[in-house]
């Protein structure tokens, strides 16, 4: 696999009211061809700024952004224009031309590329068919729903057959149902046309449903990145953990733990389970070996990219030495962490 986009030591400083603001701090990421790469973060984390360096709508203060082997930070004029035509972009507010109908909106980049009229006609027809809006060709954007507008945006972004599509919160203005439709469409764009997608979102659900890789940003820095499976199954940075817990509720929040504690006064352990390759009944086997009883008090298992992962919170009942031994054995099979005092419980959810 070759690299489609690489960010190399990208930093960006804005001057706001005479004060310097670091929007990006030494960002290093690489997006491979065929990836659907999600960048998540809260607002102000710098994710949109990072995205916009890909087509040089934003220029880094230092560092390079290499797209298809070309350093776009160094490009200007005609060369920049040519590179931008190879990168499709979709927006949160769709940004369709209100003075042009659907057909003319999708045709705009093709006219820019100087295609003959007949070819434009064929291509636009094909694109509208692909996004399911053939019957809306002569409508003006103001008459379309949000989901339809974004589909026009996608058709327009794909018009010049780009290798890369960048998406700036493309589903953030849409309701959940329409979001699902647009994400399905993006998935098809990736699979059927082989377009590499880099998308920015604050919704972890979007990442879970279409991305294969994810980077978590905070205060202009990438605090964690990796495959979606790894980050979801095992987030290490607190911000990543918060994002993951927004869509995957495998770990009990403080309120639930407090409630659990009123009944389950024994020792609690949290067991992370990955995609398993055998049906070894490790929990009951280890409990039996050490003469320990157990209660599953909280937990969940999810599927991501055809792999399972989950977390169980388990109460172990027995003599301290036996429970210690059981925890040691469990640690050989899965990742185990003991939740002891109330102080730690608070820290877990902080």
């Amino acid at each position: 696999m070759s690299t489609a986009i690489s960010f190399e030591h990208v930093s960006k400083t804005f001057a706001v009211d005479g004060r310097e603001f670091e929007a990006l701090r030494d960002v290093n990421l690489s997006v491979e061809r065929g990836d659907v790469y999600g960048i998540v973060g809260y607002s102000g984390a710098g994710k949109s700024t990072l995205l916009r360096t890909v087509n040089a709508l934003e220029r880094p203060t230092s560092g390079r952004v290499v797209v298809d082997g070309r350093d776009v930070t160094a490009l200007n004029g005609r060369d920049l224009s040519a590179v931008r035509q190879r990168i499709g972009m979709i927006f949160q507010q769709f940004n369709l031309l209100q003075s042009r109908n659907v057909y003319q909106n999708v045709a705009y980049p093709l006219k820019l590329a100087g295609l003959p009229k007949a070819e434009i006609l064929d291509r636009v027809e094909e694109l509208l068919e692909f996004v399911g809006l053939s019957d809306k060709a002569l409508q003006y954007p103001r008459r379309l729903s949000g989901g339809q507008k974004q589909r026009v945006g996608i058709a327009r972004a794909l018009a010049s057959r780009p290798d890369i599509l960048i998406s700036d919160e493309a589903t953030s203005a849409l309701d959940p149902q329409t979001t699902g439709e647009v994400l399905d469409l993006l998935r098809r764009v990736n699979r059927e046309y082989g377009v590499t997608i880099l998308l920015v979102t604050h919704e972890m659900d979007v990442v879970r449903s279409i991305a294969n890789k994810v980077a978590v940003m905070q205060d202009g820095e990438v605090v964690e990145h990796g495959t979606v499976y790894d980050v979801f199954a095992n987030p290490t940075h607190p911000t990543s953990r918060r994002f993951v817990s927004s869509v995957v509720a495998h770990e009990a929040p403080a309120s639930a733990l407090a409630r659990i504690r009123t009944v389950h006064t024994g020792r609690l352990v949290r067991i992370h389970v990955g995609d398993r390759e055998s049906n070894d009944p490790f929990l009951s086997r280890i409990a039996r070996t050490h003469g320990v009883d157990f209660n599953v008090v909280y937990g969940g298992v999810s599927e991501l990219q055809s792999r399972l992962f989950g977390t169980l919170t388990v109460e172990l009942l027995g003599a301290d030495v036996d429970v210690d031994a059981a925890i040691r054995d469990l640690a050989e099979v899965a990742e185990v962490a003991e939740l002891s005092g109330p102080r730690e419980l608070e820290a877990v959810d902080a």
């Binding site: 590179v83 931008r84 035509q85 972009m89 940004n95 369709l96 031309l97 209100q98 980049p109 820019l112």
Partner: peptide, 10 residues
């Protein structure tokens, strides 16, 4: 946003 879309299209 529309002006930016134009720039982004090249």
């Amino acid at each position: 946003g529309v002006i930016e879309a134009g720039a982004a299209m090249g």
